[in-house]
Design a binder for these strands. Structure first.
Length: 784
DNA sequence: TTGACCAGTGTTTTT
DNA sequence: CACTGGTCAA
């Protein structure tokens, strides 16, 4: 199944029942980790050091030592990682690891959702402190959550222009990660901004509670709170989980830390595996100190470093090591490999993204002709948006490629509409879904009507769907009322089947419901071309197919057989929790295109990383803070270490941004990796650069002068660093500047910082911030 | 109520 | 550029 399996032929020889087989072929360090008995264990696993192997062998070893399989809990981040781990444990342990008697191997989110469904109904702690959670809650994806949040913002009487949903969302997310509910958020808010956000948080909380819906953060936060506050339940689960293992521990956030550590508290057998240098989810709340301070959290923990890299050849390992040395927040590991130097790492500079894509495609073609399978090659990039050009180049050469975007299908409008119907049927309080599809396909129930019904619902304290049933008493025309009746009847009828039919009917049920909605035909009709229409219709059908194929997770053996409703909820949950990385299937004979984030945990013979430019990698959004730049560096580190034998990095002299070609500045990271085993070449000839726009004024601040246009290409050593630089005119203490994110503020200090300059700016509502002048894109509002 | 058109806007990464 | 939210006329 998995690509990793293909490269571990030794696994096949393992005797399922013998403990010693679990140690077969391990290095002494790996063996130490697998062998470790009771007590906390931290495995610091460098890239390619056999991390997955250690964790799966360890599970197998514990089972062989007599720990009952069902008392083992392994938590991962992606479904794919969970699936892979399960497969490997099963192949090691055979029947003892399968089915309901086997270990629990799940993602944090799915595990939390499971616990909340099972126990949230009887545990006050799972709710908001007043009412328990219902077990038929919906899971809001990021988009739905944003919709609900926008609603909450306007409900709070705030100007949606000034309070952007994305900004507010990240503040609320941070609060939830502290395990705060809105009331606690408000109690802990110390400034105007946070107090306002807390108000929105409260409105959002009310709104989602009314709709019986949880967002991604809620799943973790509520689960952590339930475990923290419900003493009885906690004791029961602590009793059950004798061994807790966490994969990719460097990416756990506070909620996840609380969940894992509370569950492991009684038996104290917690084994975490991770690499601080590969932490790339800080923006999502990942807390590096979880892994950096593991021994503080779990005194007397054993620590096993795995530094030997079995994946990549020498120059690749050395390049990665050189890069990561520039980070401050880390735990140093000596990386080494015994695979020999291998091929040199190539760095190529091209004119623009088209030349870049062509260069990559050409190299892929050549390597393929030399015998490398396409599935052994991957192109990595900072943003999904960069895939398009590469895709075009590959297509033109008839090189098949797959884009690792597992969520892409579920982002299609018609698919989301179909799922909204199903979610409404599963949870009639789900107004985000109701509003979404009440008039899709158009049936004459417009905004005014829904507004009126909404008001009535609030007034009469009933749900929107119930209010719709009373449409005639609201002075709604007969014609519209008929349409409403039809819609409500559809939902109610479908819903009546949920408790009476068995789970096995899911596929037929979904297909019938979707047919009845007329969604497929409507989606087809709204398309511009015939093909597009057919595709949309097929997508709707595909939802039914997916439902038919859905497998329920192993349930409690003592519980009643699952109903259609159980199956529907389970299906919707699995659909809500898919990830991009889940779509990666290396069995296909195709080149994989994906983001650097999605590449974590994978490996390929040949890796291409494109777009090594300032503003892209490191990404512009990270440049204000040194911590975030370190994370960008780790991101590149992750990318580099995916490669087994070949690595090509590309950078462009110009790149099209928002439809305009802009001059770029080579990524500073390229300078950091320069050294033995890295060969750079400049293949930019300047020809494709006719329409190049000079970098914008804001970006030009501080970078070595290219204003004159005299130097159409910056010298190869990265610009933006080194060279003489003057302060942009007018920047001094007292200058009033505007920042895209923080607004208007006054400069309070200028500090030299290495080759750059830090400015301290006092933003009135946002407080005081230190920004890197060269990167902050400050706009001068007024002099001192 | 609908659909068409416009203007503005924002741009990372994802469970 | 691509997308969304909003506005306006039929």
């Amino acid at each position: 199944m998995s690509d990793l399996l293909l490269h571990l032929p030794r696994l096949a020889r393992v005797e399922p029942d013998s403990l010693s087989a679990c140690f077969d072929g391990l290095t002494p360090q790996q063996r130490a980790a697998v062998e470790h008995g009771a007590g906390p264990l931290l495995v610091l696993a460098g890239p390619g050091s056999g991390k997955t192997r250690v964790i799966t062998r360890r599970i197998a070893a514990r089972i062989a030592q007599g720990v009952p399989a069902w008392t083992i809990l392994a938590l991962t981040f992606s479904n794919k990682a969970a699936r892979e781990m399960r497969t490997r444990v099963e192949s090691l342990c055979g029947s003892r690891a399968t089915g309901r008697g086997g270990p629990t191997i799940s993602t944090f989110h799915a595990f939390s959702a499971q616990l909340l469904r099972r126990f949230g109904g009887s545990s006050l702690a799972a709710g908001l402190g007043t009412a328990p959670l219902r077990d038929d809650f919906s899971i809001l994806d990021a988009d739905d959550a944003a919709t609900a949040l926008r609603q909450a913002i306007s409900d709070s009487g705030l100007d949606p222009k000034q309070w952007r949903a994305s900004t507010v969302a990240s503040h609320i997310s941070r609060a939830k990660n502290q395990l705060w509910i809105a009331a606690e958020h408000a109690a802990n808010a110390s400034d105007f901004l946070e107090r306002t956000v807390a108000k929105v948080h409260a409105a959002y909380e009310r709104e989602t509670a009314r709709q019986n819906a949880l967002d991604f953060d809620d799943l973790l936060t509520r689960c952590a709170r339930m475990l923290r506050d419900d003493v009885e339940l906690r004791a029961e689960l602590q009793q059950r989980y004798v061994e807790v293992l966490v994969d990719e521990y460097q990416d756990t956030n506070h909620s996840q830390f609380v969940i894992a550590s509370l569950l492991a508290q009684q038996h104290r057998n917690i084994c975490v595996v991770g690499d601080p240098d590969q932490s790339i989810y800080g923006w999502r709340g990942a807390d590096l100190s979880n892994i950096l301070e593991f021994e503080k959290h779990f005194p007397r923990a054993a620590i096993v470093p795995l530094g030997e890299n079995f994946r990549s050849t020498g120059h690749i390992v050395a390049t990665a090591a050189r890069l990561i040395l520039h980070n401050g927040k880390r735990r140093h590991k000596e990386l080494h490999t015994s695979l020999g130097d291998g091929a040199t790492v190539e760095v190529v500079r091209l004119d623009n993204e088209i030349a870049e894509a062509e260069r990559v495609a050409q190299t892929i073609e050549r390597q393929h002709a030399e015998g490398m399978p396409l599935r052994e090659m991957a192109v990595l990039m900072r943003m999904n948006a960069l895939t398009r050009v590469v895709e075009d180049s590959l297509r033109r050469r008839n090189i098949p490629c797959v884009i690792a975007r597992g969520t892409a299908f579920f982002e299609r409008r018609e698919v989301r509409d179909a799922l909204a119907y199903l979610r409404l049927i599963a949870n009639p309080l789900d107004e985000v879904s109701l509003q979404r599809i009440v008039n899709v396909p158009a049936r004459g129930i417009g905004g005014t009507t829904m507004q009126r019904i909404g008001n009535a619902a609030v007034l009469r304290r009933i749900s929107l769907l119930d209010a719709m049933q009373q449409a005639r008493s609201l002075g709604i025309t007969e014609r519209t009322a008929k349409a409403i009746d039809g819609f409500v009847a559809l939902v109610v009828r479908a819903r009546s089947e949920l408790d009476v039919k068995p789970a096995a009917n899911l596929g037929g049920f979904v297909s019938r419901v979707l047919l009845e909605t007329g969604l497929g035909r409507a989606a087809a009709a709204s398309a511009e071309t015939e093909e597009e229409g057919a595709e949309r219709e097929a997508n709707v059908t595909e939802v039914a197919n997916a439902a038919a194929l859905h497998e329920m997770p192993e349930g409690d053996p003592s519980a009643a057989p699952p109903t259609l409703g159980d199956a529907l909820r389970s299906f919707l949950q699995s659909v809500a929790l898919v990830a991009d990385a889940d779509a990666i299937d290396p069995e296909k004979g195709a080149v994989t295109l994906m983001t650097l984030h999605a590449s974590k945990g994978l490996e390929f013979d040949s890796i291409f990383i494109i777009g090594l430019e300032e503003g892209l990698l490191p990404h512009a959004r990270s440049l204000g803070s040194p911590d975030e730049v370190e994370e960008e560096r780790r991101l590149l580190y992750v990318g580099i270490t995916r490669a087994r034998r070949h690595l090509l990095l590309t950078t462009c002299a110009a790149r099209t941004v928002r439809g305009l070609q802009e001059r770029t500045i080579e990524s500073g990271f390229l300078r950091e990796i320069a050294g033995e085993g890295v060969v750079s070449s400049d293949e930019a000839d300047g020809v494709g650069q006719m329409r190049v726009r000079e970098p914008s004024v804001m970006r030009r601040f501080g970078s070595a002068g290219s204003e004159s246009g005299a130097a159409p290409r910056p010298a190869l050593p990265a610009a933006g660093v080194g060279g003489s630089r003057q302060m942009p005119a007018g920047i001094r203490v007292g200058t009033v500047v505007r920042h895209a994110q923080f607004g208007v503020g006054r400069i309070t200090a200028l500090l030299p910082r290495g080759s750059m300059t830090s400015v301290e700016v006092d933003f009135r509502p946002g407080g005081r911030r230190t920004l890197v002048l060269e990167y902050a894109r400050l706009e001068i509002v007024a002099g001192s």
